[in-house]
Design a binder for these strands. Structure first.
Lengths: 238, 238
DNA sequence: CCGAAAGGTCCGCTGAAAAGACCTTTTGGT
DNA sequence: ACCAAAAGGTCTTTTCAGCGGACCTTTCGG
């Protein structure tokens, strides 16, 4: 009777502090390229209000990111806080025990992506799909891995946007952030990227036609690609 | 350039307190029937350790649930904290602004369920599917709505278990809790339940055969059923 | 009838966060 | 050339959640 179910119920309760969550939010946004190099953040007072935290807490977070080299702050009128021109690479430090959680993150990714895909097949509008197309073109047109990755992230977030669900956009952003930490650590031969982008293109086509079932299955295989590449770099499963 | 993306990045940072999360965890588990009426909770000192919180915080949470009638506490040796024989119904108070968030919760549900289904199609073992079957039988065999709902919840969580993903089990539990708040508020004619359970049965069959694409699409329609019923009870969308 | 096992009470400490006043630097506009 | 506005930088005060632990009270099993 007891057992499995209770494990979930009585699992430790986590409570990240506002400070931690803010660092994470902004850090992820920068590493994903959602806040591109050189971008200016809103003034501290305004940003604090938007994030619903006090300025002091926000500043602690900003300070952390300045010290880690992700942000630059300049004073005076016309100054502000900017994303560094060359944000530091994803720290390998985070990869310490990644193997442990990696597999779970990937499961979550499957969920969020599949859900977004399903709903996008129902709700996507012309403009959503056109946007996805242009991202596919962008990926096809570059041979720089960082550029590719940024566009890739925007593509997947774009699917959530096409699903017209703010909640899924938020979840997708979060998941991409965590998956990105993994992906950035491993080499990606151009051939893999080409194949991957071909799948992107087919996904958009399937969405256009509203073929939800096929889209979800192709998506699954798309993600499996990542998983297989990662498999070689993670601790053996058993 | 800015706009949509920034909305997500600069959205308010939420930080639920440990106390709040604990009340939610236990409250949901009770309302879902994962902790059935009469069940005994572990001693406070032990439970606090398991949840990774101090005993004082845990006690505040327990006190809340005792006052709300979900739990009963008896002192002395052989005493303990128990789930009330007849936990109070889901408060309609929570339904205040449910309309607002309801739609987003349902999107999240689609994601978690679809992901679990996809992975279950790959990973489910005989025993997982057999367990699902017996839950379907259980639902077929009762005409009491509360019994049905409890089994239904366990069915959907069972899919996540069949996916062999602890993360998805946790997410599914959470999502079911929130969806349950909605479902409990609306009438469910027996006819609807029968139809719904027929879908459950077909889902298990599709899982057995590994037909991921079909399973996901049927699942989508299954959830749509809930959505349509809810639609009549929620504030108009536009 | 005692001691163990449970819940119930209390208190003091720490650290996160909020709120706000104020300082310093820089520059755009007049 | 100025100066006011707009930014980041600094400080102080207050509040509150949560921790940790000592201790009390009730009840029952052996």
């Amino acid at each position: 009777m007891s057992g499995r179910a209770h494990d979930a119920i009585f699992e430790p309760v986590r409570s990240p502090t506002a400070f931690e969550e803010t660092v994470e939010r902004l850090g992820v946004a920068i590493q994903l390229g959602l806040l591109p190099p050189g971008a200016q953040l809103p003034p501290e007072r305004e940003l604090a209000a938007r994030l619903g935290i006090s300025r002091s807490t926000l500043r602690r977070a900003l300070l952390t990111l300045v010290q880690s080299g992700h942000l630059l702050a300049t004073r005076g009128r016309g100054g502000g806080t900017f994303v560094a021109p060359e944000p530091p690479p994803v720290s390998a430090g985070g990869a310490r025990d990644l193997g442990a959680r990696a597999l779970e993150v990937l499961d979550e990714r499957v969920a969020v992506e599949a859900g977004a895909m399903l709903l996008a097949a129902e709700r996507a509008e012309r403009s959503d799909l056109d946007r996805l197309d242009s991202l596919v073109d962008e990926m096809a047109g570059t041979s720089d891995f960082d550029d590719y990755r940024r566009a890739d992230v925007r593509f997947h977030i774009g699917i959530a946007e096409a699903a017209h669900s703010a909640r899924l956009v938020a979840l997708m952003t979060e998941v991409q952030g965590r998956v990105g930490e993994l992906i950035a650590l491993i080499p990606h031969p151009e051939e893999v990227l080409t194949r991957s982008n071909a799948q992107h293109r087919r996904l958009v086509t399937l969405l256009r036609r509203g073929h939800a079932g096929h889209a979800v299955q192709l998506l699954r295989r798309h993600i499996e690609g990542t998983e297989h590449i990662l498999a070689g770099f993670l601790p053996a499963k058993e």
